[in-house]
Every structure is written in C-alpha cells, then in structure tokens.
Amino acid sequence: MMLYDAGKIIAGLVIFAAFFTVPFWYGGGKTSEMPKLELTAQARQAGQCVEPKERMRQDHMQLLDDWRDAAVRDGNRTYTSSTGKSYTVSLQNTCMDCHSNKDKFCDRCHGYMGVSQLYCWDCHLDPTEEKTVWASTDGNS
C-alpha cells in the first residue's frame, strides 16, 4: 500500500483516533463504579420518599423547583404526593430531615454526573456546615 505524504496522513489519523477514543484510555483501564448512596437510618425507616424512588431519581430537580415556586412565590407549604400523603414543602425541614447526609447522598451522584453548579446552598443551609454560623433555621426553610 502506497500512501502519499504518509507521515502527515498517519500523524493526522493518529490524532483523529486518539481524540475519538479518549474515553477508552482516559481511565487507564480501570472499570468505573456507579455511585452508591447511603441512606440515613431515618430515611431507611421511612422507606419511601415523597414520591416513588424512580420518579425521585429522574424528577427530583423538577420537584424541588416546583416546591420552591409553591413555597416562595405562592406561600403554599403543603404538598400532596401521588400516594395521597401530605408533606410540608421545605427543603431543609422535609428533604434534609431524612437526607441529612448531603455528602453521602446528594453529592455522590452530582459529583459523578458533574452537576457542579447547583445553587441550592446559596440560600439554604448546607447541613455539613457549622450550624452556629447561621441564624436559627426555624422558619427559614
């Protein structure tokens, strides 16, 4: 096989192949583990989140957005779930009550997926932060 300008052609093809196969050699041959979430004892005891697990997994962001609008804009602090149960619309008093382990719950998947620009904690109290730094969390949900 005769290639004209073989040096340039092969260099170009090597760059091309290297670029498109980055994911295959980036990890250095290690297999990747899916993040495992740790539920707190309280969460495990509750057994179910405000909505079924599959829905929470896909739509928790949408739910939190709806909750934010309901609580902050409409002053509506009661959420009736698809299972008919009522919950208080509050990130800190409802969600974080069970999921108080942010670094082993929220952060694991968000870190895995590169969801780095959340602005939950711009306003809300990050449970891992020193609580005394903040004013009372009561009514500040």
Binding site: P23, F24, Y26, G27, K30, T31, S32, M34, M113
Partner: peptide, 12 residues
C-alpha cells in the same frame, strides 16, 4: 446516573 453507568461500562 443510569445513563452514565451505561456509557462508562461501554468505554471501560
């Protein structure tokens, strides 16, 4: 997360 688990399993 399921999507990434699949894609990562492909590339590893």
């Amino acid at each position: 997360v399921g999507v990434k688990a699949l894609t990562m399993s492909l590339v590893t």
